[in-house]
């Protein structure tokens, strides 16, 4: 996990964005891509840079599930919620992961080592049903595969 970014670092990161040009989402994406999550300070920095209010930026952050306001877990399993995965039994994979990791969708372990999140279809449907472990596709899963995967992530296997 990276250290919390300083105000100066954040200002530098978003310095090329300009007000009134629909730059809220690109700025937030860049911050999340760089630091893994969006801090309150980051919201204030983006608001200042784009000459808008922190409230507007926070409203955007809180609207999209993909933006996080706390650090991501070290290992993140994203479960694909797309229709192809659904038709090939993705829901069973989800239940297996939730049960084995002992957390609901969107949860993470107390020590922030691993977590389970909802993902949106990325088009690699030939791999369905699939999950992404730290953004790497792990596809053609069976329930047994999913249980093994969860145990490996937990470190119990």
């Amino acid at each position: 996990m990276k250290a919390e970014p300083t105000t100066q670092e954040l200002r530098k990161l978003v310095a090329d964005f300009r007000p009134g040009r629909g730059h809220v989402m690109p700025a937030l994406h860049r911050i999340q891509d760089t630091y893994g999550y969006i801090t309150r300070k980051a919201i204030e920095v983006v608001a200042r840079q784009l000459n808008t209010t922190p409230a507007l930026v926070y409203g955007t952050v809180s609207f999209y599930d993909d933006f996080r306001t706390e650090p991501p877990p070290e290992t993140e399993i994203k479960w694909c919620s797309g229709p192809a995965c659904h038709m090939r039994g993705g829901d069973r994979i989800r239940r297996a992961l939730e049960a084995e990791l002992n957390m609901p969708m969107g949860g993470h372990s107390d020590d922030h080592r691993y977590g389970l999140h909802l993902g949106q279809c990325n088009g690699t449907c030939h791999e369905a049903p699939q999950v992404w472990v730290n953004e790497k596709v792990v596809g053609n899963l069976s329930v047994v595969d999913a249980i093994h995967l969860a145990r490996r992530v937990k470190g119990s296997e």
């Binding site: 309150r40 919201i43 608001a47 922190p54 409230a55 926070y58 809180s62 306001t69």
Partner: peptide, 13 residues
């Protein structure tokens, strides 16, 4: 309803 960057009212603008 949320204030500022999502914290307490007195931490917002």
């Amino acid at each position: 309803i949320a204030f500022g960057a999502g914290g307490a009212i007195d931490e917002s603008n």
